[in-house]
Amino acid sequence: MNDETPDPFIEHRRLLFSTAYRMLGTVTDAEDILQDTWLKWHATDRATVQHPKSYLVRTVTNLSLNRLTSARATRENYVGPWLPEPLLTTPNIAEETELADTVSTAMLVVLETLSPVERAVFVLREVFGYSHAEIADTLDKTEATVRQIAHRARAHVQSRRPRFDTDTAERAHVTEQFMAACAGGDLNALMDLLAPEVTSWSDGGGVVTAARRPLHGPDHVARWVLGVLAKPSVAGVEFRSAHINGELGALATIGGNPVAAFTYDLADGHIRNLRFQVNPYKLKGLYLDPETLG
């Protein structure tokens, strides 16, 4: 390979990261997978690789499958609700509804309920548009088997993934109101933004204060959120809107450093599902270039 030929790993890095992140739901693991893929790629005789992109995607997928299988056992002992690691994304992703949906926090939570192989097939087929034959080659399975897995995974996701249609202006308006209510400690204003059937999940991983179980109802959710924000440990907290996992959400920062990410689903102008990521070990994706994800 001469020096002027672009390295296929560099050329396809965004695709590879996107695949690993959607497979694993964590930025840290996705970056580890990319590092392992890079090492394998540079130890490979390039002359034997006819299709570098396919080779790299296959490597990332299989490494992710191995990581996900071991991670599932670890997550069974996780303290409190497990939420995906939030990731900053560009505003243009939010405008591409299908792309945004595949990386939304809500979708990543649903993908957690698939088996590792089902998740791999769903991501490769539904997100990146690979054919059943290509996926069969990647996973070393028959095309018929892949078709069955794809059908099962799609039906599973569709049955569990609620869809909420919210226009951009409405989401921006609710986000501004949410941040103002949190910053001002305004209980009534915050409760007014929450749907009667609101549920909140908070992921502290046992490291920082977080509810160990989902909370239900506007009063319970609002009082808990404002109670956490009133603690001395979060003095000086500031809020700003940000595109997180393809949707406009809110970041809480102290001294410019993210300490919490809020993502939510909206229905009829109210927050239906609120997800509160505060585990400091799961905020790395809030420092990355938003262009990381494709």
Results as ranks from 00 to 15, higher is better:
residue 97 T to F: 08
residue 244 I to H: 04
residue 38 W to Y: 14
residue 241 S to Y: 08
residue 62 N to Q: 07
residue 29 D to M: 14
residue 40 K to P: 04
residue 41 W to R: 05
residue 131 S to D: 13
residue 66 N to K: 11
residue 124 L to D: 06
residue 130 Y to T: 11
residue 17 F to W: 11
residue 29 D to V: 10
residue 199 T to I: 15
residue 86 P to F: 00
residue 190 L to A: 08
residue 85 E to A: 10
residue 208 V to W: 03
residue 89 T to A: 10
residue 179 M to N: 11
residue 133 A to Q: 14
residue 31 E to Q: 15
residue 168 T to S: 15
residue 270 H to P: 00
residue 49 V to D: 06
residue 255 G to S: 06
residue 202 S to Y: 05
residue 124 L to P: 07
residue 192 D to Q: 15
residue 75 R to Y: 02
residue 232 P to Q: 02
residue 35 Q to S: 10
residue 45 D to C: 04
residue 264 Y to D: 03
residue 280 P to K: 03
residue 269 G to L: 02
residue 18 S to L: 11
residue 280 P to G: 04
residue 249 G to T: 13
residue 240 R to V: 06
residue 129 G to W: 05
residue 40 K to E: 12
residue 268 D to V: 04
residue 204 G to Y: 00
residue 190 L to H: 14
residue 124 L to F: 08
residue 115 S to D: 03
residue 288 L to Q: 11
residue 282 K to N: 07
residue 76 E to I: 00
residue 120 A to W: 03
residue 241 S to D: 13
residue 242 A to M: 10
residue 150 A to V: 09
residue 197 E to D: 15
residue 271 I to M: 09
residue 242 A to H: 12
residue 273 N to H: 08
residue 240 R to L: 07
residue 29 D to Y: 11
residue 56 L to V: 10
residue 107 M to D: 01
residue 225 V to M: 11
residue 192 D to L: 14
residue 171 R to N: 12
residue 172 A to I: 05
residue 124 L to R: 06
residue 138 T to M: 10
residue 62 N to A: 01
residue 147 R to F: 04
residue 286 L to T: 04
residue 211 A to L: 02
